[in-house]
Simulated assay, not measured.
Amino acid sequence: MENNKKTIVEKTKKLLDSDFYTKGGVYETPMLYSPVLSNICSGNVYLKCENLQTTGSFKIRGASSALMNLPQELKSTGVLTASSGNHGAGTAAAAKALGIPVTIYVPAKISNKKEKKISQLGATLIKVDGSADYAETVALADAKETGATYISPYNHQDIIAGQGTIGLEILTQTPNVDAVIASVGGGGLISGIGSNIKAHKPDTQIVGAFPENAPVMKACMEAKEIIEVVEFDTLSDGTAGGIEAGSITLALCMAVIDNTETVTEYEIAEAMKLIKENHAMIIEGAAGVAVATLIKNKQAYINKNVCIVLCGSNVSDETFNSAMTMVK
C-alpha cells in the first residue's frame, strides 16, 4: 500500500511536468471562499470547484492521466471503459483531445444529460441493461475477449494520480488548509487527493463523505475487505455502486481517510439547495454529500480552514428538481 501511495505521488508530480494542463483538456479549477458555510461552522470554508471543470466533473483529470500514459501502440488501437456518466464524459473528452478511439459502456438508465454529453464528444456508446456494476462487468469481459485496454473509473494508478492533481492545487490555493472533505464512491478521488496532500502536509485531515443510502467503501473499510453492500437509491448516483474486486483503492482509502461521515438524502438535498441559493451553482448529489458532511459536523471545524471538493455538476433537471421539492 505504501508503495502504491508513493507511486501515485510520483505519477502526480510527473503530470505537472507534462502536457496535462494543455493537451489533455484539464484546467486548474477555482477555489471559492464560502461566506455562508464559513458562518455555519465558524471557520473558513473554501469550495474547490470541480463542478466547473471540463465536462462538469473532476473525472477528466484521471482519464487524461491514464490515456496520456498509455504506450503508443495501445493509443492507436483504442480503449474502453464503463461509467455511470462522469468518467465516461471525462474519458470521451480526454480521448478526443488526444486522438484516441474510445468505447464507453453505460447502464441503460443513464441520465439524458450525461448520455448527450458523452455522445457529443465522439465516443462509441454501448448501453447495458442493469446497474452500473453490471456495465462494468460487461466492459471488463469484452476487454478480456477482444484484448482492448480497459480503463477503470478508479482502480488504476494513473487514474488516481490524475485526481491527485486536485490535492496539489488545494495546497497551492489554500496552503493553510486543515481539512479536506470529499465524497467517496470507488475511492479514486479521495485516494489521489489524500495521498498527495498527506505527502506534503500530513497533519491535514482527510474526511470521506458518504450517502447513508450507499456507503459502500465505508462498509468495505470497516470490514477491511471488499464486500457486497446493500444499497438504496440516492441523489449521489455518482458515488453509488460496488467496488471492483481487488481494487487498490480500498487500502489507499484506509490509509489516507482520517474520518468518515454519512448523510441522509434530505441533508444532501439541503446542501444542493444551499449552494444554488448562495453561490448560484447547480451541483450534483455527490458534491452535495461533501457539503452536507461539513454542515452535519460543523462544530468540528470551528476556527479551521476547510476545503470542500465540489466534484461535479452533472445532474438531470428531473433529479435536481426532485431534490428541491424534498426540501421546500
Rank of each mutant, 00 (worst) to 15 (best):
E2Q: 14
K5G: 02
V9I: 10
V9W: 00
T12F: 00
K14L: 09
L15V: 12
K23I: 13
G25M: 10
Y27T: 14
Y27K: 14
L32N: 12
Y33Q: 05
P35R: 11
V36C: 05
L37Y: 03
N39A: 13
I40K: 11
G43H: 09
Y46F: 15
L47S: 10
L52S: 04
Q53V: 10
T54R: 13
S57E: 05
F58M: 07
I60L: 08
G62S: 10
S64M: 02
S64C: 07
S65L: 02
T77M: 11
G85F: 00
G85W: 00
A93L: 14
I100R: 03
V102R: 02
V102F: 00
I104H: 01
L121T: 08
G122E: 09
G122D: 13
L125K: 06
I126T: 03
K127D: 00
G130S: 04
D133I: 02
V138Y: 00
A139F: 01
E145Y: 08
E145A: 15
T149D: 00
I151M: 01
H156I: 01
A161R: 01
A161E: 02
T165P: 09
I170T: 06
L171H: 08
Q173G: 04
P175D: 07
N176P: 08
V177G: 06
A179H: 01
A179C: 09
I181V: 06
G187L: 02
L189P: 12
I190L: 02
G192A: 10
G194K: 03
G194V: 11
N196M: 10
K198R: 01
G208V: 06
A209G: 07
F210E: 13
N213D: 12
V216K: 04
K218L: 12
C220L: 06
C220P: 02
M221N: 06
K224E: 15
K224Q: 15
K224A: 11
K224D: 14
L235S: 03
D237T: 12
A240I: 10
A245Y: 14
I248C: 03
I248M: 13
I248W: 03
L250E: 08
M254D: 13
D258M: 07
T260K: 06
T262A: 01
E267Y: 05
I268K: 06
A269N: 05
A271N: 05
E277M: 14
M281A: 01
A286T: 13
G288D: 01
K296C: 06
K298S: 12
Q299K: 12
Q299T: 15
N305Q: 14
C307W: 07
C311G: 11
E318V: 14
T319K: 15
S322E: 14
A323V: 11
M324I: 13
T325K: 15
